[in-house]
Computed example of a mutant assay.
Amino acid sequence: MGRGIVTLLGPVEIRELAGRLGLRPTKKLGQNFVIDGGTVRRIVRTAGLDGDDVVIEVGPGLGSLTLALLPEAARVIAVEIDPVLAAQLPRTAADRAPELAGRLDVVPADALRVTAAELPGSPPTALVANLPYNVAVPVVLHLLAELPSLRKGLVMVQSEVADRLAAPPGSRVYGVPSVKAAWYADVRRAGPVGRTVFWPVPNVDSGLVALTRREPPATTASRAEVFAVIDAAFAQRRKTLRAALAGWAGTAAAAEEALRRAGVDPSSRGERLAVTDFARVAEHRPLHG
């Protein structure tokens, strides 16, 4: 596949482009633009794309990462909520990657609500994104649920969020994001990212998270039923599962019975359970509260 010539955006070009658009990065949209070419090249390299991949990028902003993705993928679908940025991105691609600009589709939409039907062409196979930090977890979970075609992903998120997404059972930061992500994929930390590669410089550290799709646990319970148990278990994480699942089961005694039938100690807490354990508990929910 012909790679074409791409001129990446640097700090000067990004500030100039933002000034021309009258853009002031907002905390509300979680806008911190990557200004370091080495970082975007590292993200693309770590994502392990092949020439047939259709990439979905969320929050492309001014296009730093988009430009680095175009030579490495068959197509890039960029989902951008900001209409000014969405309108500018195809022009930036045409200016800086003229031979590859035809590979880019821009979808002006909210990534938290975008559906598979709204995305043009072949379904995406890879998620690669510098995610807006205030919505990173719900965006990842929504896209994994909405796009079963996604086989892999590499996302940049706040360092603490990266820890939570990749945390194993028993970890201090293991919680709802960890278990729900594990329903869809194997998740691991894929390296730190320094603050100075962004403009404006955020007051938090960042990290890369790699996702590899796998089959969900074999269970007779639906995903919604399993996720209901997960939400209940962590809503009051200091409580034992017997107490935390009392509302879900109807009574604490009913919760204890369901847990015992699932082979789970009722006195343990949610952070000890893997996603397969939660699936077993969901299968044993009492028919009557």
Rank of each mutant, 00 (worst) to 15 (best):
Glu57Asn: 10
Ser171Leu: 00
Ala78Met: 11
Leu49Pro: 07
Arg189Ile: 11
Gly59Cys: 13
Ser122Leu: 13
Leu143Cys: 05
Tyr133Asn: 06
Val114Ser: 00
Gln158Met: 02
Leu85Val: 13
Gly175Lys: 10
Ser171Thr: 09
Val54Trp: 11
Gly102Leu: 12
Leu89Lys: 14
Leu150Met: 10
Ile56Trp: 06
Pro90Ile: 13
Val76Glu: 12
Pro177Trp: 03
Val140Asn: 01
Ala145Glu: 15
Leu69Phe: 12
Ile77Ser: 10
Gly175Tyr: 06
Ala73Met: 11
Gly170Arg: 13
Ala182Gln: 08
Ala116Trp: 07
Val135Phe: 00
Ala97His: 07
Val84Asp: 15
Glu99Pro: 13
Glu118Thr: 02
Thr92Phe: 00
Ala182Arg: 07
Val173Pro: 07
Asp163Cys: 03
Gly121Glu: 12
Val176Gly: 01
Ala111Val: 08
Asp163Lys: 11
Ala181Arg: 02
Gly48Thr: 10
Leu62His: 04
Glu146Cys: 01
Gly175Cys: 08
Pro138Glu: 07
Met156Ser: 12
Arg151Ile: 01
Glu80Cys: 14
Gly48Phe: 09
Asn134Tyr: 13
Ala117Pro: 06
Val76Trp: 06
Glu57Lys: 08
Arg151Gly: 15
Ala136Gly: 03
Pro169Arg: 02
Val140His: 05
Leu165Ile: 07
Thr115Asn: 00
Ala101Trp: 12
Arg164Pro: 07
Leu89Gly: 11
Ser64Ile: 12
Leu154His: 08
His142Ile: 02
Leu131Gln: 06
Pro124Ile: 11
Leu62Cys: 04
Val176Lys: 06
Pro132Cys: 00
Arg75Asn: 14
Ala117Arg: 14
Gln158Val: 03
Gly170Phe: 07
Val157Gln: 01
Arg189Tyr: 05
Gly63Arg: 10
Val155Glu: 05
Leu85Cys: 10
Leu62Arg: 07
Ser149Val: 12
Thr66Cys: 14
Ala167Tyr: 06
Gln158Trp: 02
Ala136Asn: 01
Pro123Met: 03
Asp52Ala: 15
Thr66Trp: 07
Pro98Thr: 01
Glu99Leu: 14
Ile56Arg: 02
Pro60Leu: 09
Arg164Ile: 06
Ser149Ile: 12
Thr92Trp: 03
Leu154Ala: 11
Ala111Thr: 12
Tyr174Lys: 08
Asp95Arg: 15
Gln88Leu: 15
Gly121Ser: 04
Asp50Gln: 02
Ala145Asp: 15
Leu150Phe: 06
Asp110Ala: 03
Val155Met: 06
Pro124Thr: 03
Leu150Cys: 05
Val84Leu: 15
Leu69Asp: 04
Gly51Lys: 03
Thr66Asp: 09
Ala74Val: 13
Pro60Gln: 09
Pro83Asn: 04
Ala101Glu: 14
Ala94Trp: 04
Leu100Tyr: 04
Val79Leu: 08
Asp95Phe: 04
Leu49Gln: 00
Asp163Tyr: 01
Glu57Asp: 12
Arg91Ser: 15
Glu99Tyr: 02
Gly63Tyr: 10
Met156Tyr: 10
Arg164Trp: 05
Asp82Pro: 08
Leu100Ile: 02
Leu131Val: 04
Ser64Asp: 14
Arg113Asn: 02
Val84Arg: 15
Asp82Gln: 10
Thr66Phe: 11
Val106Ala: 08
Lys180His: 00
Ala166Pro: 03
Glu146Val: 01
Pro83His: 09
Ala129His: 08
Ala101Phe: 05
Tyr174Ala: 04
Ser171Phe: 05
Ala78Asp: 06
